[in-house]
Write a protein that binds this DNA or RNA. Structure first.
Lengths: 66, 66
DNA sequence: CATGAATATCAAAAATACTTTACATTTGGT
DNA sequence: ACCAAATGTAAAGTATTTTTGATATTCATG
């Protein structure tokens, strides 16, 4: 799973902490998802997609081996 | 999180076991996701969406309290 | 260079997702 | 009614996600 959260955040110009607040998780959770350390639940992915006004598929993408 | 996996399966006319095989999880995993017992990871949601040729948002939907 | 804001990282615990095995129930066809 | 296929459920165990708290690093700017 790769993602372009950093880009999406840049477009909306919000910090990891602000995104965390918007979707009600810790800022570490945002950080570790953004850096690809783990895959979020569908609930989190949907919330992020909603924040950015994008489809999940525009933010998260499957890779070889997923 | 609610989902319409049952409908999607009906459209493609595949069983829970077949869907499980297609996305490489156990049949029980498909069953419990379908019956709303837990929320799949984004990897699984993406794989399911791909199987059905739909966006995740067309299959999974946030509810109050998610 | 110093300061503050943002990001990265680490470790340990809690919560949730997923597997396996096994059995029960429902459903559809003959 | 009978049979087989599909679905539901349960318990126990493993794996992964998420939180919390704390510290470290990066980066822009004064």
């Amino acid at each position: 799973m790769k993602n372009n959260l950093r880009v999406q955040r840049a477009i909306k110009n919000i910090t990891q902490a602000e995104l965390a607040e918007l979707i009600q998780v810790s800022r570490q959770t945002v950080n570790t998802i953004e850096s690809g350390k783990y895959v979020p639940s569908t609930v989190l992915a949907l919330k992020m997609a909603r924040v950015f006004g994008k489809a999940i598929e525009e933010i998260f993408e499957l890779e070889e081996g997923d």
